[in-house]
Amino acid sequence: MKELVETIAGALVDHPEDVLVTEEDDGRTLRLRLQVHEDDMGKVIGRQGRIAKAVRAVVYAAGTNQDKRVQLDIG
């Protein structure tokens, strides 16, 4: 799951080397935190949060296939 978020975010930003994803798994819930270069924050969030919402939808769908609840924090 971590690799999925890194791949998506890396394709969106100008500084892919600064993409950092950390994950915490407590059994049922997987919490992912995405950090990017501050100049790329707007590209990851998108207008009115549309890109962030789309990334969350993809990650949520992937988590459903693995019987996990996924939470993605961007910041």
Rank of each mutant, 00 (worst) to 15 (best):
D39T: 11
H15K: 14
K43T: 09
G42T: 10
V59H: 00
G27R: 03
V13W: 04
R28I: 05
G42A: 13
V5I: 14
V19P: 05
N65R: 15
D26S: 10
I45A: 09
A9H: 08
G42Y: 15
E23D: 03
G10C: 07
T7L: 04
R47V: 03
R47G: 05
V21D: 05
L30R: 12
A9V: 06
H15T: 13
R33V: 14
L4N: 01
L12N: 11
L32S: 03
E6S: 01
V19N: 10
I45V: 15
R31A: 09
D25A: 13
A57P: 01
D26V: 04
T22H: 05
G10Y: 10
L4F: 08
G42E: 08
A57T: 09
I8D: 00
M1I: 05
G27T: 07
M41L: 15
L12W: 09
Q66E: 12
I8W: 00
R47C: 03
P16G: 08
G46Y: 10
R50S: 07
R28P: 02
A57I: 01
R47Q: 06
T29V: 15
G10L: 05
L4P: 00
Q66D: 15
L32A: 07
A52H: 10
V19M: 10
L30V: 15
A9L: 10
V36T: 15
T29E: 13
K53A: 13
R28W: 03
E23N: 02
Q66N: 04
D26I: 02
A52D: 08
R50P: 02
L30T: 02
L20T: 12
V59F: 00
T29C: 09
D25W: 04
A61Q: 10
G10R: 06
A11K: 03
N65E: 14
R56N: 05
V36N: 12
E38I: 12
D67F: 11
N65K: 15
V36L: 09
T29G: 03
R47T: 09
Q48E: 15
Q66R: 14
A54V: 03
K53Y: 06
V19F: 08
V5A: 11
V21W: 08
V13K: 05
L32M: 01
T7S: 06
R31S: 11
Y60K: 14
I51C: 06
A52S: 13
V55N: 04
A62I: 06
K53P: 01
V44N: 12
H37Y: 12
I8L: 07
V19A: 11
D39I: 07
D67W: 12
V21L: 04
D25L: 12
D67C: 09
V55G: 01
Q48T: 04
K2Q: 10
E6I: 02
E3W: 00
V21N: 06
R28Y: 04
I8P: 00
G49P: 07
M41F: 13
A54N: 03
R47N: 09
R31I: 05
G10I: 07
N65G: 14
V13A: 09
Q66Y: 03
P16V: 11
D67I: 05
V21K: 03
A9D: 11
I51R: 11
E17F: 01
R28A: 09
E38C: 05
V58Q: 00
E3G: 02
D26P: 04
E3F: 06
M41Q: 13
I8A: 00
A11C: 08
R47L: 02
L12E: 07
I51E: 08
T29K: 14
V59K: 01
V55Y: 06
A57V: 02
G63M: 09
